[in-house]
Design a protein around this nucleic acid. Structure first.
Ligand SMILES: [Zn+2]
Length: 270
DNA sequence: CAGTAATCCTGCCCGC
DNA sequence: TGCGGGCAGGATTACT
């Protein structure tokens, strides 16, 4: 499940390989990969355009072209990669960008939830997304004020991309455990001490995960099948039935906010 | 406003 | 062994 650290890892890997290249041909293997734009319009808008930069916003990979922007969302099982090796199994390839210098950029996605969006004005996407957790505006004060004025279950709020852009199921569980907050705790009842701890947890865990090239739970790879190194540093995610690293209580897997959720029942009280 | 559930899609796990 | 049913999961949408 690519979240902010995994997407950042992909962007850092692709940026030097893509900047300055031109998209020659767009090949939609599975046309529904294009969202909210007619395929012909998409193809016409993209072909012949030069890639000026590759950046990240939330969990989106942004390809900045001459006159439009592409936003790629990997969802659960998507991977975006360049390879010179011949690809023979196209069962899970949803799109191919043929770029200059004979290279090909592949979008592979077993679950087919991933999408490519076209934006003429990036502001439209930017407005929909919440604050960047590693941006300068994300402070303890900002978090305190914004938890206080809402009455939301904490895990739901952390997963809400219009509130905070970038966390998914793995890192939401990890930061809540680190800050000792129960996932169903209402945001307006979180103490200032725990708000401070949560802010610290988000910054530290995301930064460490990026440094480790992310977490590979299932399909996540970058740069020719390399996997993330943060798996070894997970404390609670998929650790049900093992001991809490902090207090040795057995980690439990519960259902919260409609998703599998891992908690220490002792460290994280409601 | 907040929460729940259906939707999309397919590999995988479980039970018989 | 093989088959079928059901589940998981990010984001959006429709309800309550
Ligand atoms: Zn504990």
């Amino acid at each position: 499940m690519p979240e902010l650290p995994e997407v950042e890892t992909v962007v850092r890997s692709l940026r030097p390989q893509l900047i300055g290249r031109t998209i020659l041909v767009f090949e939609p293997i599975w046309p529904k990969v294009i969202e909210a734009v007619l395929l012909d319009d998409f193809t016409a808008a993209v072909e012949g355009q030069k890639i000026k930069d590759v950046t990240r916003r939330g969990k989106f990979i942004l390809l900045h072209l001459d006159s439009v922007h592409l936003a790629v969302h990997l969802r659960m099982t998507g991977t975006l990669f360049i390879t010179r090796k011949p690809v023979t199994d196209f069962q899970h390839i949803t799109a191919v960008f043929h770029i200059s210098a004979g290279e090909k950029l592949f979008f592979r996605d077993t679950r087919k939830f991933g999408r490519i969006y076209l934006y003429r004005d990036l502001e439209v996407l930017d407005r929909k997304l919440g604050i960047e957790p590693l941006g300068v505006g994300f402070t303890t004060e900002w978090l305190w004020e914004n938890l206080r004025i809402r009455k939301r279950q904490m895990k739901a709020l952390l997963l809400d991309q219009t509130f905070l852009a970038g966390l998914g199921n793995i890192y939401a569980d990890e930061v809540l455990w680190r800050a000792k907050i129960h996932p169903l705790k209402l945001s307006n009842t979180v103490s200032s001490t725990k708000t401070k701890a949560l802010h610290e947890a988000i910054g530290t865990i995301l930064t460490d995960a990026i440094a480790a090239n992310g977490t590979t739970i299932r399909d996540f790879t970058f740069q020719d099948e390399q996997t993330g190194g943060f798996n070894n540093e997970l404390q609670v995610f998929q650790k049900e039935d093992s001991a809490c690293p902090r207090c040795s209580t057995t980690i439990r897997k519960i259902r919260a906010v409609g998703r599998g959720t891992h908690i220490c029942p002792r460290c994280q009280r409601q």
